[in-house]
Simulated assay, not measured.
Amino acid sequence: RVWGQITGKTFGSSNFRSALENGVLLCDLINKLKPGIIRRVNRLSTPMAGLDNVNVFLRACGKLGLNHSQLFHPGDLQDISNRVTVRCEETTRRLKNVLITIYWLGRKAQADSAYDGPQLNFKAFEGLLGVALSKVVFRSADVRKLL
């Protein structure tokens, strides 16, 4: 909910990972938190454009003061579901990394006295992120409740 309140946009997908993999929503989010921090968002629907957007988003997070340990890896948003050797735990770990970055970005925004927008539900995030990886199941509907 908060995501839509901040960006004015919806996920457009029932899958959390696929909604974010092109990086457009991430770039739109951070530009709402700090207008102009990302000057150009690549809206082409190619994997390279998506990777470019995700990297630009992560650099912008660094400019806002997030450190390397608070950032997910660009590959965490890649679709690995069709790989034979990937276990569910790996997909869960990758999505958890993305949520951790969103959590810290939300914390940073709320600490900024210039930000007066919607607030993340930190208790819900902390509860979700504190659960053992093997028991965490990320569904878009669950994530939307947090955002």
Rank of each mutant, 00 (worst) to 15 (best):
D142N: 07
R107H: 07
A124K: 15
G8Y: 12
M48P: 00
D116V: 10
W104R: 11
N22E: 06
L128W: 09
Q78V: 07
L128K: 14
R94Y: 07
N67L: 09
A111V: 00
G50A: 02
L120V: 03
S45H: 14
K32E: 13
G36D: 04
I102N: 04
N67A: 09
F72I: 02
N55H: 10
Q70F: 11
V2S: 14
A49H: 01
G65P: 04
A19I: 02
Y103R: 04
V86C: 06
E89N: 07
C61Y: 03
W3R: 12
R83V: 09
F125W: 14
L33N: 09
N82D: 09
S134Y: 08
Y115T: 00
G130C: 05
S18Y: 12
Y115Q: 04
I38C: 10
T85A: 07
I80M: 08
V54A: 08
W3F: 15
T46V: 07
A60E: 02
L133E: 06
L146I: 15
V137Q: 09
N53H: 02
I37N: 02
D116I: 11
I6F: 12
R94L: 00
T85R: 11
A109F: 11
T46F: 02
I6S: 05
L25N: 06
A132C: 05
F138K: 02
D79Y: 14
E90P: 00
W104Y: 15
G127N: 13
T85E: 10
S13Y: 14
L77Q: 08
L71G: 04
I100R: 13
V137F: 08
P118T: 10
F125E: 01
F57Y: 12
Q78G: 03
P35A: 11
K123Y: 05
G36Y: 13
R59P: 00
V84A: 12
L105S: 03
D76M: 09
I37R: 05
L26Y: 04
L58C: 00
G36T: 04
L71E: 01
L95A: 03
L147E: 10
V137D: 04
I102S: 06
L20Y: 08
L99N: 05
R17W: 09
G127I: 07
S69V: 08
I80S: 01
P35H: 10
L25E: 05
D52K: 15
L105Q: 01
V98N: 04
D76Q: 05
G36F: 13
L71Q: 03
I102L: 15
G65F: 11
S18T: 06
G106W: 11
G117N: 02
S113V: 11
T91Q: 11
V131P: 00
Q119I: 13
R87E: 09
L95M: 13
C27A: 03
D112P: 03
I38G: 11
A60M: 13
I80W: 08
Q70S: 11
G117E: 03
K9E: 13
I37H: 01
G130L: 01
V131R: 14
V143W: 07
R144G: 00
D142Y: 08
I37V: 15
V98C: 07
L29Q: 04
I100L: 12
N82H: 14
V84I: 12
Q78F: 15
